[in-house]
Design a protein around this nucleic acid. Structure first.
Lengths: 335, 335
DNA sequence: TTGTACGCGTTATCAA
DNA sequence: TTGATAACGCGTACAA
C-alpha cells in the first residue's frame, strides 16, 4: 500500500529517474532496462501518485465545469458530453452547480486559479466583466457553452435562428396569432438563450407583416408547472393564440398540459413548439428545435484541451447547427 | 502569479512554519505575529496551493461519485444533493458517468485509490465482489446510494414497501387487474430497485388473494418511448389491466402517453402510478411514490465525511422514508 | 543511457 | 512561541 517510484527503482535495480523516464515513455532508455523496470512496476502494482505528479508538473489534469441548475435536462445533457470527452482525454472533471447568486460569487472567486484547475468550462452562464477579469489575469483557459462573451471562445447555437425556425414553421402552417413562453431574464443567473429565441420569433413575425402583442408573451421561471400557469392564462384570454412557441421542451410540456386541462386538442385547437429536442420531446410528439447538446460538451472539451496544449483558439464563436424537428404537436389552425 | 508561503513568510518576517500555523489556525501562535502574517497574506493575496497541501497531508479533499446514466432525473437529483453537501464540507466532487460495462470496469479499476480520492459515493450501482475487494483492500471509505451490499454503508429506501404502497392504493380503489412496467435487470449495470418494487407489488397483490399474470408484467429499458410501447402492448391485449404500476415517473409518463394515444381516459379507463416524485410527476398529476432523492445525496455525504474523519459508520443500512403521493392519475376502475 | 540531486509548495517535527 | 528542516512522491536538469 503506497508503492512509490523508489520502491520500483530499488526492485529494478535502477535509479528513480530511470523509472520516471520509463513511465513517461521517454525515448532515451535502453530496451532491456526498460523491460526490467516494467516488470518491477507490474510486480509491485505501481501507479504513480497523481498529486505528486501535479505538484511536480504544475498541472492538475483537472477541469472544472460550472453550470447553473443541474435540474435542467438540457444542461445535464451538455454535462454528459463534457464528461465523456474529458474521460477520453484523461482529465478529471469537478462539477460546480450554481443555483444562487451567492454560490455564483463564491465559485468565481475561489475556482479560477491555476493551482486548482487547468481549465474551465462554463455552461449557460455568461460571465460578468469582474468575473472575467480574474480569469483573464491568470490566463486560465476557458470555453463557454450556450453563453456569450465577445472575447471568450464559446460553443453556441444560433438562438435567434431557432426562434425564427419555430415561428416560420407556424406561419407557414397558417398561424397568425402566435404566443411565446420563455424564461425570466433575471440578471444574476441570466439565461440569455430564451431572450434571443424571443427575438427570433419577433423578427420572423414582423417579417411576415404581423406583430406579437404583449398579451401573447409570457415569462416565468423554468418549471413546467409555472409554464402551465402561464399557458392557461394566455389561452383563456379574449383573443387566445392558435400556436405557442416555447423556449424549452420542458416549458412546452407545461403548455401541452394546460391545453389538455382546458379540453383543447393539440394540434387541432392549438399548436405548440419546444426547444432542445430532449427525450421528452420525442415522447410527447413535440415539434421542436433540435440543437446538439451532448456534442456541444464534446466540442467545448476538445477546444479547451487544445488551448491547454497550446493550440490557438481559432474562431472564437463556434456555432453548432440546429434544425426543426416536426412532430405531431403542430398543424394548421382550425379556424 | 504563484505567491507561495515563502513569500508570505519573507514579507511578514517569520518562518514558513509560522505562516502554516496561522493558516491552519493552530493555537500556539502569538496574536501579534499572527496579525502580521495575516496582513502579509492579504497584501499578497495569497491562497495555499491545494496540490501541495494534498501531497503533504496525504489527503485529496476530493470525493468521487460514480453513477450510471446521468440521463435519469432521479440520479441527477441525488447528484445535486451530493454536490451541495460536498461544497459545504469543502470537498471537490469528481464525477464518473458509467453507461457501459467497459467504462464500469475502467472506473472501478482506476479510481479506488487513496492517492486519488478520499472517498467514494456510488449511486444506483451495486458493486461486484471483485470491485469491492479492491476497495476493501485499500480501506477506502464508500457509501452507496440506492444500491445494495451486505457489508457496505448505504442510504436506501424500501423499494419493496414502495411497490406495496402503490399497489395497496390501487387495490383499495378496487382494482383487480394490475400491471407493472419496469427496468431490465441486466446484470452488468443492474438496477435492483425496479426488481424490488415488482416484488413489493407481487406481495401485496398476493396478500389480497390475487395474482399478477405474466402478461401484465413488462420489462424494458428505461426510456419513456420504450415504456409507451410496452404499455400499448399491455393495454391492447385480450384482458388489459385497469391499472399500471410503473417503476419510475419517466416510465409512467410513457404509460400515460400510450393511454392517451389509445383514446383511453386517465384515470377513468386506466390508473397509473409512478415512482420518485420528480418534477414531471407533479406536472403530469401523477400518483407516485415519493422518495427523498436530493436528501439521499446529502445523507450519503454526511456519512462519508464522518467515516473519513474517523466516526464509526453506525448502522450500515440507513433507510429513508417514502410515501405515497396521490394525484389525479388514479381512481376506482370504471367497470 | 543512467543515476543523483534539486524543485514543486505545503505540513509536521524538533530544537531553541 | 518560533524557525529551520525533513518529509510527501514525482519530474528533470545535469553530470557521469
Amino acid at each position: 500500500m503506497g508503492v512509490t517510484i523508489s520502491d520500483v527503482a530499488r526492485l529494478a535495480g535502477v535509479g528513480r529517474g530511470t523509472v520516471s523516464r520509463v513511465l513517461n515513455e521517454r525515448a532515451n532508455v535502453d530496451p532491456r532496462t526498460r523491460s526490467r523496470v516494467l516488470e518491477a512496476i507490474a510486480a509491485l502494482d505501481f501507479v504513480p501518485n497523481p498529486t505528486a505528479r501535479r505538484l511536480s508538473l504544475r498541472r492538475t489534469q483537472t477541469i472544472a465545469v460550472i453550470l447553473p441548475f443541474l435540474t435542467r435536462p438540457s444542461a445535464v445533457e451538455r454535462l454528459r458530453g463534457v464528461e465523456a470527452a474529458l474521460v477520453r482525454g484523461g482529465y478529471d472533471m469537478i462539477v460546480f452547480n450554481v443555483e444562487t447568486v451567492e454560490r455564483r460569487e463564491a465559485v468565481f472567486r475561489d475556482l479560477p486559479r491555476r493551482e486548482r484547475v487547468d481549465g474551465l468550462i462554463i455552461i449557460s452562464l455568461s460571465p460578468h466583466e469582474t468575473e472575467l477579469e480574474r480569469i483573464g489575469r491568470i490566463d486560465l483557459p476557458v470555453v463557454l457553452i450556450d453563453a456569450h462573451h465577445r472575447t471568450l471562445p464559446r460553443v453556441v447555437a444560433d438562438d435567434v435562428l431557432g426562434g425564427r425556425l419555430a415561428s416560420r414553421h407556424l406561419l407557414a402552417l397558417g398561424h397568425r396569432r402566435i404566443g411565446f413562453i420563455g424564461d425570466i431574464p433575471r440578471i444574476p443567473l441570466a439565461f440569455t438563450s430564451s431572450r434571443l429565441r424571443l427575438t427570433g420569433v419577433r423578427r420572423e413575425i414582423t417579417a411576415a407583416g404581423l406583430t406579437i402583442p404583449a398579451s401573447l408573451v409570457a415569462i416565468g421561471d423554468h418549471s413546467p408547472r409555472r409554464s402551465t400557469e402561464l399557458a392557461t392564462r394566455m389561452l383563456t384570454q379574449r383573443l387566445p393564440p392558435t400556436a405557442i412557441v416555447c423556449a424549452s421542451d420542458t416549458q412546452a410540456a407545461g403548455a401541452l398540459e394546460a391545453a389538455n386541462a382546458l379540453g383543447m386538442n393539440v394540434p387541432g385547437d392549438l399548436s405548440v413548439t419546444g426547444y432542445d429536442d430532449i427525450e421528452l420531446a420525442d415522447h410527447l410528439g413535440l415539434t421542436t428545435v433540435r440543437q446538439p447538446l451532448f456534442e456541444s460538451g464534446v466540442r467545448a472539451v476538445e477546444r479547451l484541451l487544445g488551448m491547454i496544449h497550446g493550440t490557438p483558439p481559432g474562431v472564437l464563436r463556434e456555432v453548432q447547427p440546429i434544425s426543426l424537428v416536426v412532430r405531431r404537436s403542430t398543424a394548421p389552425p382550425s379556424v
